[in-house]
Amino acid sequence: MSDSSETTFAEKWTGNRRRLLVDGAKTACAVGLFGLALGVHARSSSALPSAALRPPGALPEDDFLAACSRCGLCIRDCPYNILKLADLGEDVAVGTPYFTARTGPCEMCEDIPCVPACPTGALDHELTDITRARMGLAVVVDQESCIAFQGLRCEVCYNICPVGGKAITLDYSSNPRSGKHALFVPVVHSSDCTGCGLCEKACILEEAAIKVLPVKLAKGELGRHYRLGWEKKKEAGEALVTPDVEHRYNLPEGVRYEHEGRGLIFDRPPGQPAVTAPGAGVDDTPFSSNPLDTLNRGIEGAK
């Protein structure tokens, strides 16, 4: 018999302890090294390339890699066959599902069949409204090549967007090149974009100017200690900090300056003639509402 198992088994009981120890140490070393290599491999393959998008409802990548059993059931239940299982040698962790927006975007099925198909919960079953999915975030990555920024009418991404008119809107502005036309520029709103990738698929350029990126890559994040004063004020209904002491302007008596509103104001204390700027026609402002008045006054003065 060439198999060594019987001999080592026997030795265990005949008490060849040195052999046993050496064998044990060898096994521990080999298995440990294998484990180390495996750990390093797992680390390096846990980074998802930015072009690979997870199916709707996928947990954050860290949790997803712990929860996904690589069974492929989501792939079987995708009616458009856009999901793929990563193969050996790809950058995506082998056996996990992903799709590529440019070649096969998520078609946003209303019943989201891939999600209930997931047996482990790696795709969150709480997700029942596909417009709440966040597979990624579309970003107009290249304004230099997007033809809308050149003043050409395109709007393909805007028109194909399944979250109609909310995830992508068109910003109008004047076209400084022609001086008389408008620019219709696509703007993505992270509040509504699901990251389905239909816009990236539809982009008419050779290389899409609008791309779906992982949310983490696409979004900035305000420091957690930041508070936007005006929002807090709105929430609370009043200023949460001591209001600014009003700046004292060196103004003549009866004249004051009001922030956030009317600007320079001329008060007329009772019993006194109104303080008016030279040439003022109307009561509380030195300037007439009719711009021609000044001109007319000038003409009168010349007479």
Binding site: T8, V31, G32, G39, A42, C68
Partner: peptide, 28 residues
């Protein structure tokens, strides 16, 4: 030469590597 019981070491290892990396490392 390797003992048949090496498999239990490997079994333990798959679980340890899973715990350390937080992913199903052995499935790679």
């Amino acid at each position: 030469r390797l003992k048949p019981s090496t498999r239990y070491w490997v079994l333990g290892l798959t679980l340890i590597v899973s715990a350390v990396t937080g992913t199903l490392a052995y499935e790679l």
